[in-house]
Design a protein around this nucleic acid. Structure first.
Lengths: 134, 134
DNA sequence: AAGTGGGCTTCCCAACGCTGGAAGGTCAAG
DNA sequence: CTTGACCTTCCAGCGTTGGGAAGCCCACTT
């Protein structure tokens, strides 16, 4: 299986697969006589694993840890659980940050009549404190 | 006022201010005899504006647009409002994406006993369909 | 045998928004 | 005059790709 086929089947672009190899996230692929990367079904499983973990927002670094744990049959599930929980914590922080922005913005938008006139509470607020109460 | 002072007062690191100047987000600062950047109170207002807009998650590019609108006394507030609404849309998309990840992760975490044993539904799920350890 | 077209290779550059560091100039105080 | 804090420019890198150039490989047709 060449990189194009495994790319389609794993859902990861060929470029990304080469990148993951270059940074050591996945081991170097075997090469054919013509120097093409060749992949097995097992490699496909690995790449699918990576794709799903990335889809859940894990950093490439954390995906590396997960891969190691996955391949270690003696790992403690607590370790995986802890990684996942930390990640949920990060996600929660991001959500809260975004919600804060959202609150402020919608509040400002509500106050802005949004017509042809230049008066604009949004800009007024960005321009500095003391012009509007939140 | 040198860059260090305005950095402290605006909340933006000196490096960042130089960077903003280099990409044209803010106009080049006047220079002292010794080639130091010198800033006025007006510049401070501009930098504070930038800092607040960035804090609301606007991209540097959009901050540029907001600055232009801010300085144009004839602008229509509708333009600003539209920019802000688009930004809220982006924020909503990000929040939904994160919430989706969060849902999946917490579901998996709930199923993982998280002790010393190797059995781990989180990894089983990442490994793909049909591989559930039951 | 030669050509054609697609896939593969490596390498470099761009993107985002900074951040760090090196090498050196300026300034005020002791 | 020296020290040390501040400033200058330039270069490089972070993370995760995506784009594209230049060239090799392979299977197919003519």
């Amino acid at each position: 299986m060449n990189i194009g086929s495994i790319a389609k089947r794993s859902g990861l672009p060929a470029k990304t697969i080469r990148y993951y190899e270059s940074i050591g996230l996945i081991p170097p692929a075997l090469r054919s006589e013509g120097n093409y990367r060749t992949y097995s079904e097992h490699d496909l499983q690995t790449l699918k694993f990576v794709q799903r973990a990335r889809g859940l927002g894990f950093s490439v670094k954390d995906v590396g840890k997960l891969l190691t744990l996955w391949q270690d049959r003696r790992r403690a599930s607590a370790e995986v659980r802890r990684l996942a929980q930390e990640h949920v914590g990060e996600i929660d922080r991001k959500i809260e940050e975004l919600k804060g922005m959202r609150r402020t913005l919608t509040h400002l938008i509500d106050q802005c009549h949004g017509d042809h006139r230049p008066d604009c509470p949004i800009l007024d607020d960005l321009a500095g404190p003391g012009r509007h109460a939140h």
